[in-house]
Design a protein around this nucleic acid. Structure first.
Lengths: 325, 325
DNA sequence: ATCTATTGTTGCATATTACACAACAATAAC
DNA sequence: GTTATTGTTGTGTAATATGCAACAATAGAT
């Protein structure tokens, strides 16, 4: 191609940065392989044979194809295109992630987005392979060198109950009081389901003053380096945070669920925060994707978007205002 | 492609006769060059990424293209296809070659044939290059290492005149008698146009006996190793053999032209052979084509056909029967 | 849960080849 | 005839392509 375009072996060689010898050899080898002379060459002029003209046309077509394809592939590095398949825990995904994904899909019209929600989010590299997933969102580390984990944000769990339940059963003043309460327990996701951990209380001076005389020596609550773990008596169990929230709203008891599950109820007053000065163990949301030299643009875009989105929407982050008691 | 088809690096490697290391490296380099991961590989399973699937499809398309094209090129080696451009001397081509070319074109329906007739048939490698000729037919050697010359057949030149001219001017008994005759000379093609050379006479014993007493010591005819050269006095000149034949038929004189030019006249009796026992210097028809490692199938086919055709049609070969005197 | 066999990846030594240089051959212009 | 330019071919060297071996990682078996 270059020889024909240049009209001369010598010029083509200098354009290609090769010696004339190589160019001559390459053309000769190609002719030998095809078994047909492609160029009629006399010392001064160069011209295509019939086969040469046909072959040149073919080569140019193939090169155009290759070029356009490489451009297409390079574009996937420049902008998010194609399909993005995300796997996420069902409850978290249903309630809050769906909004984020919808917003993301709207912002990326050239990207098809698929959100797969399951209760058992990740079963190994199988998901990235056969299932064709690009990204898995989960709360526990994979402990595998073949994946990359990136923190998206922290999800805070909140302790809450309905006002009428609290009016009926009394408002707990410290975590240890929870042992006496009807607790609605989220199972299968948090480790040690029946043990709730808290940190705090915040404003320790005030809290200690306020509760010094009221709270008896803690029973069944073991403090450990500023955190307290209390074994609760479950009255109702579910692996779905929304179900627990509904149960709590119905006055069934006190529940510890991710904030996203009860955000609406808290805003509406159907549920109120219990022990606001204590912070339940928060869990970081991880974005997990296969370890590769380069992260696909679409994955990067989604991770970035989700980080920003979670920060902006303040999911799981404790609101500045303290719920009025 | 082979890795995907095999479903495994190891299997693909053994199928390709390479080591796993190379296959891994090749795929890795390709991914690096494209900037995108093509295969999701975990130890046990292999699967395509979205980019990988698209790229595979593209590669298969390109490979199909290449394969079909190479088949097309290989077919030009198996059977004569395409276009064959032949250059030939105008007079020879017009009269006799055209029939052969027409027959050849009929026998090769997949081959387009172009017959270019010129009085100056060959001007160097320019014809094979810029003009796109595949084959040049001519009577003189090229004396060039960059072309191949192949003998197609021998064209005999015959001395003839019209019966009425002979009745008027007398029938020559030996070449030397031609000096006294009105000669119609073919110029520009034979070297030394005004010198006619003959060999013979055939049947030397009879001829010598028959002419011993009749012919005086030859004047203006120099014998050389069995051949005789006679300088003729031109009465009419042309570079077109057909024109000379017409002139001779019109009774203008004796002419020496290729047999093909007067075949019809001889058969019709419009012209008769003069000095049939002498053989005018015959000229071999050469097929000239560019020197290349492999001769194009279409050229080879035409050369073969033309050789056979000339042998069958006995062009220029002295007919077994001797023209009746 | 531990072990094991298999698979893909990487460091390193080597054999292959790709390449440039130089001499040569050939042709068109002077 | 002379000459400059162009394509081709022989030869030594440098770049690379390849295989081997060790390694890392995972899925299945125990």
């Amino acid at each position: 191609m270059r020889v024909v375009r240049a009209g001369s072996f010598t010029i083509a060689a200098s354009q290609l940065g090769l010696s004339r010898a190589l160019v001559s050899r390459h053309v000769g080898e190609l002719e030998g392989r095809l078994g047909a002379r492609l160029l009629n060459r006399s010392t001064r002029s160069l011209s295509l044979t019939e086969e040469g003209a046909a072959y040149l046309e073919f080569c140019e077509r193939v090169f155009r194809d290759i070029e356009s394809n490489e451009r297409a592939i390079l574009r996937t590095r420049a902008e998010p295109v194609g399909t993005l398949k995300v796997l996420a825990p069902k409850s978290f995904g249903t309630i809050h992630l769906s909004d984020a994904v919808i917003a993301f899909a709207k912002a990326q019209p050239r990207l098809r987005v698929s959100l797969v929600l399951e209760n058992t989010p990740y079963r190994g590299s199988y998901d990235f392979g056969e299932r064709g997933l690009d990204l898995v969102l989960c709360f526990s580390t994979m402990r595998s060198a073949s994946v990359v984990e990136q923190e998206i944000g922290t999800l805070e769990w909140v302790l809450c109950a309905s006002p009428d339940y609290l009016a009926r059963a009394g408002r707990p003043q410290s975590p240890s009081d929870l042992g006496e309460h009807s607790c609605l327990v989220h199972v299968d996701v948090m480790p040690n389901d029946s043990v709730w951990r808290f940190e705090g209380p915040t404003q320790p001076s005030l809290a200690s003053q306020a509760t010094a005389g009221l709270s008896p020596p803690k029973r069944r609550a073991r403090r450990r380096k500023g955190s307290v773990a209390v074994k609760v008596r479950g009255a109702f169990f579910s692996n779905a945070a929304l179900t627990l929230a509904k149960a709590a709203a119905a006055g069934l008891g006190v529940t510890l669920v991710p904030r996203y599950a009860v955000a609406d109820d808290l805003a509406a007053g159907t549920l109120v925060n219990v022990l606001p000065r204590y912070r339940a163990a928060s869990r970081t949301l991880l974005a997990v994707y296969p370890a590769a030299p380069t992260i696909p643009r679409k994955v990067q875009a989604f991770v970035d978007f989700l980080k920003l989105w979670m920060a902006e929407h303040d999911i799981g982050r404790r609101k500045p205002r303290v719920a009025a008691e």
